[in-house]
Amino acid sequence: MKKENYSDLGETIKSDDSDFQFASEVKKRSGTDFNMCYHCWCCTGGCPFSHAMDYTPNGIIRLVQFGLKRKALESSTIWLCVGCNTCSTVCPMRIDMSAIMDTMRQMALEEGISVAEPDILNFHKEVLHSIEHYGRTHKLEIMLRYKIRKRDWFSDMDVGLKMLAKRKLDLMPSKVNDIGEIRKFFTDVKHKT
């Protein structure tokens, strides 16, 4: 899944599987006009994670511009982006990259596209599970449930024990009283503008 170098470098651009609705959909949902991007690579230069991504951040924009939906949504880049906004801060065109990545992640999930970084998705799911149950994040339970999902018991055991010893992992969750209000957020179908 991961490649040695950015996999878009030197690659022939094939646009036969183009989906021309894709670009306008990403634009609409993210509220971001990525056609302003002229590929100066500032975002990629600033991105602390670009070395671990299969496409560079601006490479993802290029895939969207060319309508290469599947490639974009199957990329590891959209999952490795943590939304630190370093890219948007250095972007001369003030493109909201984090909003584009949020949109694409959600489109990938809606379309059932295979997720390049399932562990990252599982982590997000566990965080939301915790919020749904307590209204706040309960780190110990998030970690344990994440480990169970991954069937990985031993990695980070040392970190977990250190955190317990330093009282950084509370055994009991901190909770919202009106948890019903929080749970409704998870079940309601919204019709907002």
């Binding site: 939304g83 949109t103 992640r105 998705l121 997000h124 965080v127 939301l128 919020i131 209204g135 919202v176």
Partner: peptide, 14 residues
Amino acid sequence: NCCGSSSAHSIRSE
């Protein structure tokens, strides 16, 4: 309540 942290905006904007 939790502000949503990174996970909520990552996979469920609403």
